[in-house]
Amino acid sequence: MNTPIRRALVPGVAALALLLTACGGGDDDAEASSGSGSSEVDYSSLSGELVAGGASSQQTAQESWLVGFQEVAPDVAYSYDPVGSGDGRTNFISGGYALAGSDAYLTDDEDELSQATERCNGTAPIEIPNYVSPIAVVYNVEGVDELNLAPEVVAGIFAGEITKWNDPAIVDANPDADLPNADITPVHRSDESGTTENFTDYLDAVAGDVWSAGVVETWPTEFGGEAGNGTSGVVQVVTENANTIGYADASQAGGLGQAKIGVGEEFVAPDAAAAAKILEVSPRVEGREDVDLAVDLDHTTQEAGVYPIVLTSYLLACQEYEDQATADLVKGFISYVVSDDGQELAAQDAGAAPLSDELQEEIQGIVDGITAAS
């Protein structure tokens, strides 16, 4: 008899805002301890309240940045509410957030880019990749410790066309695995999700003939499967139920199996170093201002050692704010995030892929130009 799927519990309250309240006086060594020699920011001189929010994918990294930032800027109260990418962009455009996290760059499909430009006093919004992490294809199959999946097989599983674990398409790539004659249960996000958008962007790019739903933030119901709320919900459902497979930020995959994904002639594991390489082989979005570092990820790359299913999350900010205090706080926080210390914290605590030295320097040059309206 098949064991019924146990669904993840859906939280009954809104995500808790992360808040560090200012305490103590200045730190004479604050600027030096930032870890970024190119920053023009004197962290110890900063004070006030800075409100941000958005992508929940950044939550663990944001928690680490909050702690680290308070050490160098103890008189700043910074809060980040992980309400999701869509609400993050909306609240940034409306002026509710001074900066926002988003798992998708701004576009004019819904006038977001033009509205953000208007919100930023007519200047193009800043978009910088600050958090890069592999999206792992997680699975729970007894006795299967390693699993290789070709791109079209991943698409076939989540589109409901490959339904058995011992399907020849899976067996051929895993000759030494003891794959059961059992139904595959795909698990997806139940909420609107940047992770889902990035995952379906990969499916659409590598196997658009199999994955017919395109790039979506909300999972298409016609493909069935089971659902979990948020990354933690997907991980919970896969953990508690045999023969399941899902997708989740690799840093939150826990003890689940994580499939290697086919790239060229090899299968690549979802580690941070392999995820970081995709930024090196992917083009920038065309027609953007110099302050906009949005990237069109090349999911179809054949480059050796590149993990192709990646979540690239952005910080959205303005080149120009209404007041100098907000401009200074935004400049200070982003400078810390992209500093060596900030990137190391995100790597250690959230499994993020550290930005390259070249990208750090480019971002810092953009951030140093943040000003207030005259």
Score class of each variant (00 low, 15 high):
Ser38Lys: 11
Ser56Ile: 05
Pro175Leu: 07
Thr221Phe: 11
Pro11Arg: 06
Ala207Asp: 06
Gly53Phe: 00
Ser193Pro: 03
Val206Glu: 01
Leu293Glu: 05
Ala30Pro: 12
Ala373His: 04
Ser133Gln: 14
Ala213Arg: 04
Gly88Tyr: 05
Gln252Val: 06
Val330Arg: 01
Leu256Glu: 04
Thr301Ile: 02
Cys318Glu: 01
Gln258Val: 07
Pro4Phe: 13
Leu147Phe: 00
Leu355Tyr: 14
Glu286Tyr: 08
Gly95Tyr: 11
Ser45Glu: 10
Pro134Trp: 11
Leu279Asn: 13
Lys260Gln: 09
Tyr43Glu: 08
Ala350Ile: 10
Asn148Tyr: 04
Gly254Cys: 10
Gly26Asn: 08
Gln70Val: 08
Asp271His: 12
Gly35His: 14
Glu303Ile: 00
Phe69Gln: 12
Asp323Phe: 01
Ile261Tyr: 07
Gly88Ser: 06
Asp191Glu: 14
Gly351Asp: 01
Ile128Asn: 00
Val268Glu: 05
Tyr307Leu: 12
Ala317Lys: 07
Thr231Val: 09
Tyr105Ala: 05
Ser212Gln: 14
Glu161Cys: 03
Gln364Ala: 11
Gly351Phe: 12
Leu149Gly: 13
Gly143Asp: 03
Leu293Thr: 00
Glu142Cys: 06
Ser102Thr: 13
Asn229Gly: 05
Glu49Pro: 07
Leu315Gln: 13
Gly305Leu: 09
Pro308Cys: 07
Gly194Ala: 09
Gly257Val: 06
Leu355Met: 11
Asp201Lys: 01
Ala259Asn: 12
Asp368Asn: 06
Ile126Ala: 14
Gly143Glu: 07
Thr195Tyr: 03
Ala104Asn: 09
Asn166Tyr: 03
Glu280Cys: 06
Pro151His: 12
Thr185Glu: 13
Lys164His: 02
Gly264Glu: 01
Asp368Gln: 10
Val13Lys: 08
Glu222Cys: 01
Asp29Arg: 13
Asp357Ala: 13
Lys164Arg: 14
Asp328Asn: 10
Val310Glu: 01
Ala248Met: 00
Val171Asp: 04
Gln258Trp: 07
Val281Asn: 02
Glu63Gly: 12
Leu99Thr: 01
Gly255Asn: 09
Gly24His: 11
Lys260Ala: 04
Ser374Met: 07
Gln59His: 04
Pro354Val: 14
Asp357Lys: 15
Pro82Tyr: 15
Ala124Gln: 12
Leu311Ile: 04
Ser38Gly: 10
Ser57Leu: 03
Ala22Phe: 05
Val285Gly: 08
Ser79Asn: 04
Trp65Val: 04
Ser133Trp: 00
Asp172Pro: 09
Gly86Asp: 05
Val367Cys: 07
Leu359Ser: 04
Gly255Glu: 15
Ala136Cys: 04
Gly365His: 10
Ser47Ala: 06
Gly54Ser: 02
Leu99Asn: 03
Pro82Ser: 07
Gln302Val: 11
Ala182His: 14
Asn241Thr: 06
Val76Met: 09
Gly156Met: 02
Val338Arg: 08
Tyr307Pro: 00
Ser232Gly: 12
Asp292His: 12
Cys23Gly: 15
Ser356Gly: 04
Leu256His: 13
Glu142Gly: 08
Asp28Leu: 14
Ser57Asn: 13
Gly88Arg: 02
Gln324Arg: 15
Ala274Thr: 04
